[in-house]
Amino acid sequence: MKTETDQAQIEHIIQTLKQDLPTLFERDITYDIYSQDILFKDPISRFKGKFNYRIIFWTLRFHGQLFFTELYFDLHDVYQSEENIILADWTVSGTLRLPWKAKIFFNGQSCYRLTDEKLIYEHIDTWDRKPSEILRQFFRKGM
């Protein structure tokens, strides 16, 4: 049964995600909304634990600055789809630091599952194309 407190906690998580995600390539996110044993999975990786989760975001920032002249995480929507599930729809786009200025672009969705205590214990990303298709964008000339 959902209480007012539960809904307030879910709203806090949604607002935190709305604040954190658009700038995840520029600065660190807020970790107090995640459980210690958070599971992260996307089409190319799988990690468990808050320490590893922090490393994922550090790595995204590091590689983003190293390999891209521009890199954006455009957040389209964050919403509660079921009692303990929050979804985020987004697009990643950027320009690689290559002489031919290759562009990268893909859409995705993050599914966050919540514990009864209203902490995120699972973060699963799905993408609108295969990793190999995204990698091929590196070799196309940008516009």
Rank of each mutant, 00 (worst) to 15 (best):
F67D: 04
F62K: 09
F138Q: 07
F106V: 11
E82P: 02
I104F: 00
S110Y: 14
Y112K: 03
L66P: 11
G64W: 00
I85G: 02
F62P: 07
T126Q: 09
L66C: 06
L96N: 12
P99D: 08
G64M: 03
D74M: 02
V92E: 12
Y79A: 10
E83G: 11
L98Y: 07
K101Q: 15
E133P: 01
S81R: 11
S93V: 03
Y112E: 09
D74K: 14
Y112F: 13
E122V: 07
S132Y: 10
D89Y: 08
W90N: 01
K141V: 08
D116G: 09
K101H: 07
Q137T: 13
G108R: 00
F106L: 11
A102Q: 09
E70C: 13
D74E: 13
G64C: 04
Q109V: 13
D77M: 12
F67W: 09
L71G: 00
L60P: 01
L98N: 01
Q109K: 15
Y79Q: 06
R129L: 13
E70W: 09
F106Y: 03
F68K: 11
W100A: 02
K141E: 08
C111I: 11
D74L: 15
T69L: 02
L66V: 12
V92W: 10
T91V: 14
C111R: 12
D128T: 07
L98W: 03
A88R: 01
D116I: 07
K130C: 04
L60F: 11
T95Q: 15
G94C: 08
Q137K: 06
Y121M: 07
Y72H: 08
I85T: 13
S132M: 06
V92K: 02
K130P: 02
S93P: 05
N84S: 13
R129F: 03
L87Y: 02
S132I: 02
Q109E: 06
D125T: 08
Y79H: 09
K130L: 08
R136N: 11
Q80V: 10
I134V: 14
S81N: 04
N107T: 12
T126H: 04
Y121F: 08
E133M: 11
G142Q: 05
R136T: 13
D77S: 10
F62C: 05
Q65L: 12
G94R: 00
F105W: 07
R136Q: 11
E82W: 10
K118A: 10
Y72A: 15
G94D: 01
G64T: 01
R113E: 11
T115V: 08
I104D: 02
E133Y: 08
K103V: 15
D74G: 14
R113Q: 11
R129K: 14
I85K: 00
D77I: 07
F62S: 10
E117H: 03
L96K: 08
I104T: 02
I86C: 02
E117Q: 06
V92G: 04
T126W: 04
H63E: 15
T69H: 15
H76V: 06
T115K: 15
T95N: 05
G64P: 00
A88Q: 15
Q80C: 02
H76Y: 12
F62W: 15
Q80F: 07
Y121Q: 02
S93R: 15
E133T: 14
V78G: 01
G108Q: 05
W90S: 10
T126R: 12
W100I: 03
F62E: 03
Y112P: 01
F68P: 00
V92D: 04
F73T: 04
